[in-house]
Design a protein around this nucleic acid. Structure first.
Lengths: 244, 244
DNA sequence: CGGTCGGTTGAAAACAATCAACTTCTGTGG
DNA sequence: CCACAGAAGTTGATTGTTTTCAACCGACCG
């Protein structure tokens, strides 16, 4: 699990970028033929098993990644082991922009995952040439910032119940944009990951899910699948308009 | 206080951008003569009193702002009034990028403040022409995202004491980069603003400051000035390496 | 079949929130 | 210049949500 993160990132670069079906969900997809051709020329790809570290907080930042398939978590660690997950990534998402040449978070797969990899330097020079790529990347970065601020509101001001409801609805919405069911949602991450994302403990996450279950808002056929029974009620809670 | 936010944003555009002394701290400063000339041509400026709303969450997003002088807070509101401040901005900082044409947070001055204002549309077209501007803005956006993630760690995993220590050290560091004293720090925002930034209540912020005072780490000559006596100890706390 | 891991549930403790009173500061008007 | 009113901040007592500590359950695997 802690092997060289680049061990599998060998140059199995495919002949074209048509290999992923992300349409225009990824910054790098749907660019038009000449843009794609350029991007394809600097692209590397990788298939990683679950729980594989892509890079660690503090590593020299040299590459930008996009998720083609699977799921990735980004996390920050404190000296004493406290952890905060700052993002869960799904197909179409990108990650790897770091401050001052170092990654500011670790990236790990949570299920088997396919990634595309681009040299940051080369991507930067490609951005100089391709306005479309540039605009997409800029827009995604703005989106990302907006999402981070939303998460601040969640972490700073929401109750455990609201946090979990919000999280489940987020998973549902993201599944829908991927074309998956929004009612029966896959929860690929562990309770610990959920807790570290929501600023809670495992126990509180577990208890809160049990409560939502008892309230008839969700069903949990297995720990990694949540069936959303009352999406509207759940959304109300997620938005802070409690249901009491 | 709730007057038209643009009331004072009349076209008192100065003859050049040399009017601010931000050097290269702002994305728009230190661009070189032709870049500056272009930017200057789309620039508006404003002097606003304290507690003036620049724009509100949900307003149509048409402009990007930079802080020339003073301080601004960005905040998000929940339906029931709970509030999260997602950023404090000081000279050199920018704000105003919104998702899908709307601002995702409100912006208010906290002390008398001078702003520069750029039409987002025109700024976007200027970015197409000027690679330097583009790179700066992109870099600042990445920085901003990194800072937001750092704040997630604070909100999700730090204790009240750690949060307040972290906040004071942040103010100190930011003051230093502006050329102000890093030992005697101005705290322009109210306790309520601090609380809403740190995910705490006023009372907890106040109590925590009292504790830090009693521990001999800081002095508080007035509620809006904090003198940092033991920067190293405070930094230890801020980083989660408690001092007990 | 035993062991480990992930998850759930229970009881107790703790940190921060809430409710409430009080103090300090500031600005205004007499 | 002083007195007063209101706002901002501090402190105290109590409550409560979430954490911590601990036991237990079930699934998967060797």
């Amino acid at each position: 699990m802690n092997a060289d993160p680049y061990a599998k990132l060998i140059a199995d670069t495919g002949p074209n970028c048509g290999c992923c079906d992300l349409e225009d969900r990824a910054f790098c997809a749907g660019l038009g033929s000449q843009g794609s051709a350029l991007l394809r020329s600097i692209r590397g790809s990788a298939r990683l098993e679950a729980h594989h570290t892509v890079f660690r907080e503090g590593d020299a930042a040299s590459h930008i990644f996009t998720v083609v398939k699977g799921a990735v978590k980004l996390s920050k660690l404190m000296a004493d082991g406290r952890r905060q997950i700052v993002g869960f990534l799904f197909p179409g998402d990108f990650f790897g922009f770091g401050l001052a040449g170092s990654y500011t978070y670790s990236a790990e797969t949570i299920i088997p995952t396919s990634l595309c990899r681009f040299s940051e330097r080369r991507l930067a020079s490609l951005m100089e040439e391709n306005a479309d790529l540039r605009r997409r990347l800029f827009g995604r970065l703005v989106d990302e910032l907006g999402f981070a601020q939303e998460q601040m509101l969640l972490l700073g001001r929401m109750t455990a119940r609201e946090k979990v409801a919000h999280f489940l609805m987020m998973l549902s919405r993201r599944a829908a944009t991927r074309g998956d069911s929004e009612a029966v949602v896959a929860v690929p991450m562990s309770r610990l990951d959920m807790a570290d994302y929501l600023g809670l403990t495992i126990e509180t996450v577990s208890r809160t899910i049990t409560t939502l279950k008892k309230d008839g808002l969700i069903e949990v056929p297995s720990p990694n699948v949540v069936s959303i029974l009352k999406a509207d009620s759940l959304m109300q809670i997620a938005d802070g308009n409690g249901d009491e």
